[in-house]
C-alpha cells in the first residue's frame, strides 16, 4: 500500500507551516503574482501569507486517490467501524438493549452515514469554491489555494463514495433542499463559508477521534486519517477567511440582518447535527422503529451533551467572530 512516505497509523499533526521551500519543491513552483493581478478590489479578502503557505503544504502532501488506498473485496462485519462512543445512540436505553453483534453492525451503518453526510456536504462546497475561482474579488493567491482545496475535496468524495458503495451498497441521500431566498449584501458569502466550516469542523472531530483508534477497522481508521490531514489546512483557511468576512460585513449589516443571520446559523448547526441521526442507517442496521430511535436520540440528554462537546470549538469560534450571539440549543 502506498503510504506517501508516511505511516498513517503514526500520523503527526499536520502543520500549515510544514511546507518545503520553492527549491525543495523542485518544479512545483508557486508563481509570483503579476502586478495587474494585485490590483485591489473592494470585496477582496487578504489572507496574508496563509494562502501561499497552504498551497505549499498541499503540494507537499499531494496524493493520488486512485492508488493511495487498497480496497479489500469484503470487510469483517463483526468489528468496530465507528468508535462506539461516537455512535449516535451511545448511552441511550436503545444502545444498552443491543448485543455486541448489533452494535458493531450499527457502527458500520453509522460510519457509512458519516462518510455520506461528509460527501454530501462537500458537493455544494466544491461548487461554491469553483464559483469563486478567478473572480476579481478573489485574491490570486487565494484562487491558487482554492484549486488545491477543490482537488482535495474531490478526492475525499471519491474516497467516501468508494467506501460507501463497496461496503454499504449506497451513499446515503442528502435530504436538504435548495430554496431561493433574499440575502443582504455579503450575507450569502458569509453563509457559504459558515457552511464550509460546519461540515469540516464537525467531521474533523470524528476523524481525529478515530484515526488512531486501534479498535477501529484499519481501512476506516486510514480514511479518517487521510481526511483529517487535508482538512487541517482547509479549516485553517476557512477560519481565517471567515473571520475577515465577518469583520467586513458585520460592520455594515443592520442589527436586524445580523440577528437574522445569527438565528439562521444556530438553526443551521442544529440541522447539520440532525443529519447524524439518519433513520435509514438505523433501518439498514436492522433496528426496528428507525424514526422513533432518531427522536429518542435527538432528545436524549447524553446525546445533547455529545453534540455540545463536539461543537465546542466551532461554537466558541462563531461567538468570537460575532456570527453567533450565544450558545445555540443543539
Amino acid at each position: 500500500m502506498h503510504q506517501g512516505g508516511r505511516d498513517f497509523l503514526s500520523s503527526e499533526p499536520v502543520s500549515v507551516e510544514d511546507a518545503p521551500s520553492a527549491v525543495e519543491r523542485g518544479s512545483h513552483q508557486v508563481l509570483p503574482v503579476a502586478p495587474h493581478q494585485a490590483m485591489n478590489h473592494p470585496d477582496r479578502i487578504d489572507t496574508g501569507p496563509l494562502a501561499p503557505r497552504l498551497t505549499k503544504a498541499s503540494r507537499k502532501f499531494f496524493w493520488n486517490v486512485y492508488d493511495y488506498i487498497e480496497w479489500p473485496e469484503s470487510i469483517d462485519g463483526a468489528t468496530w467501524y465507528m468508535a462506539p462512543e461516537l455512535i449516535s445512540i451511545y448511552g441511550t436505553e436503545k444502545w444498552e438493549s443491543l448485543d455486541q453483534r448489533a452494535r458493531t453492525q450499527l457502527s458500520l451503518s453509522e460510519l457509512g452515514n458519516f462518510f455520506s453526510l461528509t460527501l454530501q456536504g462537500e458537493r455544494p462546497l466544491v461548487q461554491g469554491l469553483v464559483h469563486r475561482l478567478y473572480l476579481k474579488s478573489t485574491d490570486p493567491e487565494v484562487t491558487e489555494y482554492l484549486h488545491h482545496f477543490v482537488d482535495e475535496e474531490n478526492k475525499h468524495m471519491v474516497m467516501f463514495g468508494e467506501f460507501c458503495n463497496r461496503y454499504i451498497g449506497k451513499v446515503y441521500a442528502e435530504k436538504k433542499l435548495a430554496f431561493g431566498r433574499e440575502y443582504a449584501k455579503g450575507e450569502e458569502e458569509v453563509a457559504f463559508f459558515c457552511k464550509v466550516l460546519v461540515v469540516e469542523e464537525l467531521g474533523d472531530y470524528y476523524n481525529v477521534a478515530m484515526q488512531e483508534d486501534e479498535r477501529i477497522q484499519p481501512l476506516a481508521a486510514r480514511i479518517n486519517w487521510i481526511h483529517h490531514r487535508d482538512e487541517a489546512r482547509h479549516m485553517a483557511f476557512g477560519r481565517r477567511f471567515l473571520q475577515s468576512l465577518a469583520e467586513r460585513w458585520l460592520a455594515e449589516w443592520s442589527p436586524e440582518t445580523t440577528q437574522g443571520f445569527q438565528a439562521w446559523l444556530a438553526q443551521y448547526l442544529r440541522s447539520s447535527w440532525s443529519d447524524f441521526y439518519n433513520p435509514m442507517m438505523y433501518k439498514d442496521a436492522g433496528l426496528d422503529d428507525p424514526y422513533g430511535i432518531r427522536t429518542l436520540a435527538l432528545d436524549h440528554p447524553l446525546c445533547r451533551e455529545h453534540r455540545t462537546r463536539v461543537s465546542r470549538k466551532l461554537i466558541d469560534y462563531f461567538i468570537s467572530v460575532g456570527l453567533l450571539s450565544g450558545e445555540p440549543q443543539l
Binding site: A173, E174, K175, K176, L177, A178, F179, R181, W264, Q267, Y268, R270, S271, S274, D275, P279, M280, Y291, R294
Partner: peptide, 21 residues
C-alpha cells in the same frame, strides 16, 4: 427551509417509505 429536512423525515415516518428529495 431548514425545517424542511425534518418535515421530509416526518413525512417518511407517516407513509413508511423514504422520500427521494
Amino acid at each position: 427551509s431548514l425545517d424542511v429536512v425534518e418535515l421530509v423525515l416526518f413525512i417518511e415516518s407517516l407513509r413508511g417509505s423514504e422520500v427521494d428529495t
